[in-house]
């Protein structure tokens, strides 16, 4: 139980990454593969934030006097993840537009069929 309560955030983010990888490896539908990529994205963001956390820490904002700078969580992963999320949504939109284009060209979203037409 102690092990579980110590590592619950790790379990959450790596569970998300593994489910995403499983979807990418096994599913045939193109939009479902993109959903899996989104899961991997969220899991990696959660992992980066988890690395910077300090037990009992406060957010790195000096909004009121009397906050102890010794107990503040790491601001650098937060700044990196902030930009990562915005990049993630734009790249996702690009991938979906490619999927729409493929659907108009082949008439299907099944990856096996698209590959058979190609080879």
């Amino acid at each position: 139980m102690n092990f579980l309560s110590n590592n619950i955030y790790y379990i959450g983010c790596f569970g998300l990454i593994f489910i995403g990888l499983y979807i990418v490896l096994t599913k045939k539908n193109l939009i479902k593969v993109i959903i899996g990529i989104n899961f991997i994205d969220t899991g990696v963001n959660l992992f980066l934030i988890t690395i910077g956390y300090i037990r009992g820490g406060t957010a790195p904002i000096f909004s009121r006097p009397g906050l102890n700078p010794e107990r503040m969580v790491d601001p650098i992963p937060q700044a990196l993840v902030l930009t990562t999320i915005v990049i993630g949504v734009s790249v996702l939109a690009l991938a979906l537009s490619l999927a729409i284009r493929l659907y108009h060209h082949y008439g299907t979203l099944n990856l096996r069929k698209i590959r058979e037409l190609k080879w």
């Binding site: 939009i31 957010a59 904002i61 937060q78």
Partner: peptide, 23 residues
């Protein structure tokens, strides 16, 4: 909960709203 309110706002407005709309 991990003391990252900036990231929480970005994830709530982009991940939960805009990504769903685009999909």
């Amino acid at each position: 909960f991990l003391q990252a309110p900036d990231v929480a706002m970005a994830e709530a407005s982009i991940g939960a709203a805009l990504t769903t709309a685009i999909f």
